[in-house]
Each structure stands twice: as C-alpha cells, then as structure tokens.
Simulated assay, not measured.
Amino acid sequence: MQLVPYMLAALAVGIVVSFQPPMNGMLAKSVGSAYGAAAVSIGIAFASIVLLVLIAGHGEISRRTLGSVPWWVYLSGTIGAAFVAAGAAIAPVTGGLVFFICIVAGQLIGSMLVDHFGAFGLEVRAMSPMRFLGLAMVLGGAVLVSQS
C-alpha cells in the first residue's frame, strides 16, 4: 500500500480543518456563545455525515455491532465536541497558528503515548530519543511563534 496519497489527503484535511476554529469563532461572536456556536457547527456536521452515509453506505451499524464496542469508545464524540468548542473559544484569542501549534503539540504528546503503550489496538512503537527530539522541536516552534 502506498502511503503518499493518504498523506496528501491528510494534509488537505489538515488545511481545511485549520479554517474551522476561526469560522466557529465568528459564529460564536454572532450568537454570543462558543458553546452555542459549537452546537450549531456539530449539528451541521451531523446532518452532513448522515447525508454522506446515505450516499456512501453505513457498513453494519446494528445493535449487535454497536454493543460489541467498549463503552468508552463512544467518548470520541465528546472529544470532537470539545475540540470544536475549544476552537471557537480559544482560536479568536490566540490566533489560528498558535492554536493549532498547541493542538498539534498536544496531539503529538498523546500520539506518542498511544504508540508507546499500543493503546486502542495500535502496534507498539516505543518512545525514542528521535521521537522526543521531534516533539521538542514542535514545542520549541510553538514558543517561537507565540513570541512573534
């Protein structure tokens, strides 16, 4: 399997996702609440994904398959809601770049832990000096960008 198309798709999604917090910040300013803006945004996201499921198919969503998943897996929806609400509340204060550098740094820390422990069914990939160096560079970049 070639990774490059997937990497380019992830890059494109990352670019588009960077527009979401400032757009939600504008919505929050209009409605007077970051959480209200997040609710509207997630409602639209829900309608969009329902439409996509109707077009592309839904796999096997059934009581049996949904019951076979550990309860805590469903917290991923809460994580998504927290991200949207945080973007609406934080990005207007920090700006998009600092917001996302901090988000990415947090994701890297979390991802390093997930890889190290093989959490959520991933293959174990131990922490290493190079991984720590890469993480330190991102954190250093966050400090540099926030100073400008």
Score class of each variant (00 low, 15 high):
residue 39 A to D: 01
residue 71 W to E: 05
residue 97 L to I: 08
residue 101 I to V: 14
residue 1 M to E: 06
residue 91 A to C: 08
residue 134 G to V: 07
residue 25 G to V: 06
residue 131 R to D: 02
residue 4 V to K: 05
residue 111 S to H: 13
residue 22 P to K: 10
residue 39 A to P: 00
residue 101 I to K: 01
residue 127 M to N: 07
residue 56 A to Q: 14
residue 110 G to S: 14
residue 87 G to W: 04
residue 49 I to A: 14
residue 140 G to K: 03
residue 95 G to P: 01
residue 7 M to W: 06
residue 73 V to G: 07
residue 110 G to H: 11
residue 147 Q to K: 15
residue 35 Y to Q: 13
residue 134 G to D: 05
residue 78 T to F: 10
residue 23 M to K: 08
residue 60 E to C: 02
residue 59 G to R: 03
residue 35 Y to K: 12
residue 45 A to T: 10
residue 17 V to R: 12
residue 121 G to K: 08
residue 10 A to W: 05
residue 77 G to Q: 08
residue 90 I to D: 11
residue 138 V to W: 03
residue 38 A to I: 04
residue 9 A to Q: 03
residue 4 V to R: 06
residue 6 Y to H: 07
residue 139 L to E: 08
residue 129 P to C: 11
residue 114 V to Y: 07
residue 114 V to Q: 09
residue 5 P to Y: 07
residue 67 G to R: 03
residue 45 A to C: 07
residue 121 G to E: 09
residue 142 A to G: 14
residue 94 T to C: 10
residue 15 I to A: 15
residue 43 G to N: 06
residue 93 V to W: 02
residue 133 L to K: 01
residue 68 S to Y: 02
residue 1 M to Q: 06
residue 42 I to G: 00
residue 48 S to F: 04
residue 42 I to C: 02
residue 58 H to F: 11
residue 89 A to C: 11
residue 63 R to T: 06
residue 91 A to G: 06
residue 59 G to D: 09
residue 76 S to R: 01
residue 109 I to C: 11
residue 42 I to R: 00
residue 80 G to C: 06
residue 47 A to V: 13
residue 111 S to E: 06
residue 3 L to W: 14
residue 100 F to C: 04
residue 40 V to F: 05
residue 136 A to H: 01
residue 15 I to Q: 04
residue 49 I to R: 13
residue 127 M to C: 12
residue 94 T to F: 14
residue 94 T to K: 08
residue 99 F to K: 02
residue 18 S to I: 08
residue 147 Q to F: 13
residue 116 H to W: 07
residue 30 S to P: 00
residue 73 V to C: 10
residue 133 L to I: 05
residue 61 I to Y: 00
residue 7 M to R: 03
residue 77 G to V: 11
residue 82 A to I: 15
